[in-house]
Design a protein around this nucleic acid. Structure first.
Lengths: 239, 239
DNA sequence: CGTGCCTTTGACGGACATCAAGATGCGTGG
DNA sequence: CCACGCATCTTGATGTCCGTCAAAGGCACG
């Protein structure tokens, strides 16, 4: 395992308004600094953790991009999410003290390690932190429900449109463009997340290009009409 | 809203080993009794809460059966889960202080009302409770991920088989039969949960009956071969 | 500059949706 | 107690979206 430790502090991290420390005052923040004292680098393609590994910590993405995926005994595989800067990974491990999915870096990445017992200890002390931890978990549940909606009731083009809108929205919240993005994942990974085959993903991209809604050049995507994408999502294309 | 209050105590509830109080000692239990002081009856078809309503409390199902479902502006609708005795409803509301789904009783039901601010307060005091609350939320996340796997990568018969196995397993944990069950939901609701149409659900039931794996009479299901169902789930039927 | 991964595109087929018509069961009221 | 209406469920016929299989092109990286 290519772990590497670096001294680190939330209090002067530029992600603090997006990440775990959100809303903490400076006294609380300095306590948190004591808890989150290490970072870990993860090379592209490597696992931050794998299914079955003992759960000890949550991780905040400091830089880079991750996917999480569950795998069944019979080799089926489902991407359950993509995580970018400031997002929290590892919540799946709490219930059984073992991780129930793999977290894979899609590009060289760095995470802040947050030992969960210490997070729990601190959140008994600070209401703000406690509440924030609860919100993070609840947010994940709500997100999962919207993915279920997508997988259960949407057509291929609606799924991809919703996916793109969600990605740029999150990137925009991090100061990136509202209309341009670089996909960090392959067509196959997008397909796994959206419950469709990579060929269908590719074809659907091509259709969007034909319709003049987006430009695509490999991993680069330029959204020419956000409205166009929104119309597709709400097109009630039936099914 | 047909609310009705009843004095109540976790400490002598026969679900305490399944529900929130799990693992608490008697001192902790009696504190919890103070927090969870009311129950609420919900008539079949009525909502425990609806999308957009202010979030104040979690609910533990005391009796009866619920579904939760998210609804989009354009009328699309997805059942995100079915909840039975001892299971917790309402976690979706924490993140935004408002519920993001509807919780509907599928039969006359009763829930224990757990004001969330008081749950938080108590879980700052008792490590056991704090940890248990975290586990409950994590369990929901893990469950959601397995539903994503189901929706994203399984065929109709695999989905239905997995669904039946999950239901009897949970019922069995509550002292019911491993092989017989009464479905509390319609074919349409099953279909919504599993991402298929009610006709497909019905046809798939019929196929299972033909194959001698189950008997079905309306809502009544008798599982003649648990192994048969497991084989279907793992059949790697492709897709 | 070649090798391998990723992506695109086409042709074809299958699983499931759609549309439609009956069957079955249940609650209600005469 | 029976008749009626309504919701739910079943089953068939047909259509279509997307998966499968296959081949070729593009890009990155050693």
């Amino acid at each position: 395992m290519d772990a590497q430790s670096i001294k680190v502090a939330c209090s002067n991290c530029n992600l603090r308004e997006l990440c775990l420390p959100m809303g903490l005052n400076s006294a609380e923040m300095s306590k948190l600094d004591d808890v989150i004292s290490t970072r870990r680098r993860v090379k592209r393609g490597a696992a931050l953790f794998s299914t079955g590994e003992r759960f000890t910590s949550l991780y905040a993405v400091r830089s880079g991009f991750f996917k999480t995926c569950v795998t069944t005994a019979d080799g089926r595989d489902q991407v359950t999410g993509f995580q970018m800067t400031g997002e929290i990974i590892g919540l799946d491990g709490i219930v059984s003290d073992h991780h129930s999915c793999d977290a894979i870096a899609l590009e060289d990445a760095e995470v802040c390690v947050m030992p969960f017992d210490q997070v729990e200890e601190l959140s008994r002390e600070f209401t703000t932190l406690q509440h924030h931890v609860h919100k993070i978990m609840s947010r994940e549940i709500v997100r999962d429900h919207s993915v279920m909606l997508l997988l259960g009731s949407m057509r291929a083009d609606e799924r991809l449109a919703a996916f793109l809108l969600n990605l740029v929205q999150r990137l925009h919240a991090r100061g990136f463009s509202q209309s341009e993005l670089i996909l960090r994942m392959t067509r196959e990974e997008i397909g796994s997340y959206l419950g469709m085959k990579l060929e269908t993903v590719s074809r659907t991209f091509s259709k969007f290009v034909e319709d003049g809604i987006i430009d695509v050049k490999q991993r680069y995507v330029h959204i020419k009409s956000t409205e166009g994408l929104k119309e597709i999502v709400n097109s009630q294309n039936c099914r």
